[in-house]
Design a protein around this nucleic acid. Structure first.
Lengths: 155, 155
DNA sequence: CGATACCGTACAGTTTCGGTCCTGTTTGAG
DNA sequence: CTCAAACAGGACCGAAACTGTACGGTATCG
């Protein structure tokens, strides 16, 4: 199913609450948990992780809380997923260093997988938190924005 | 990490052996397992699943085996992933029927997720088995197929 | 101080995955 | 007509990952 962890899912939902109104930048975990209707300990965990990865900034103390480290237009879905569950890669081989693969010499598809991973990463990078926070119906993602065929290889 | 099951990974690798040479259409599981250097019981399991989903056709009996149900250009990576591990959907809510999500009414990102899923599905559908079977057309960039985990798969 | 809120880590319950095995059933060959 | 090769379909188990919770600690404000 090409599954994504629920933590990443929650993380995106939570961050949209930060992105929603630009006036109120500071939110504490209790309020965010209540708004998202998620258990507080879990929300704590996610917000802490997002802070460690540099997507949120924390402010301790009585009137503390979290606020976005960057503007919502500068945070992509890929950033959030990477922060909560590691690098975006469908196959295990493509996220590892070379040489670890037993059959790298005979594996028939590794180069092609890299392309697919890049395509998906690009798709996720192209969607920003600001878009996710908007109350949806927008135009669908254009395929041209997503599809990376044989020619597109980053860097 | 947006992980895909190893079964789907194997499935793609195995199918490339069927797509490779058009002359030899029939392959039995033992030979394919040997070629891919994967354990035979696992290969059996995958090929059976692919047959049930209509990607392979099985031929029983002594000289039996499997052959592709369609031409390699007509089988997409999305087909293979769907066959081995269910529908392509990053989040759980988008692959379920409506009503299962507790907070569907207040979930702020549901509609946006749907778009992302569609985009990824489209990307995976655009890559055909025939392309995966081709020796990768680009410069080799950090391959490494299966991480040397606990089992090194020495056949 | 002391209450609030974040920090880090550790821990258990549950589910899923990965892999194996076993018992049919079908088919071709001798 | 008998046998062995090869697929069919579950059942099963250990290991890993995910999910959620808890606890002791630290910083900040009034």
């Amino acid at each position: 199913m090409i599954r994504m962890t629920r933590l990443a899912d929650y993380g995106i939902v939570l961050l949209t609450y930060f992105a929603r109104d630009p006036d109120k930048t500071m939110h504490n975990s209790r309020d965010v948990a209540a708004a998202a209707r998620l258990p507080l300990p879990t929300v704590n965990k996610i917000l802490k992780a997002l802070t460690r990865k540099g997507l949120l900034v924390s402010h301790r103390g009585v009137k503390g809380g979290y606020s976005l480290a960057r503007r919502p237009e500068e945070i992509s879905v890929a950033d959030i997923i990477t922060a909560t569950e590691g690098p975006v890669a469908l196959t295990q081989c493509t996220q590892s260093l070379p040489g670890l693969c037993v059959q790298e010499s005979c594996c028939p598809v590794h180069g092609n997988w890299q392309r697919i991973n890049d395509a998906i990463r690009l798709a996720l990078e192209s969607v920003k938190l600001s878009e996710m926070a908007r109350p949806f119906p927008q135009q669908p993602l254009t395929p041209a924005r997503i599809i990376v065929h044989k020619e597109a290889r980053v860097s």
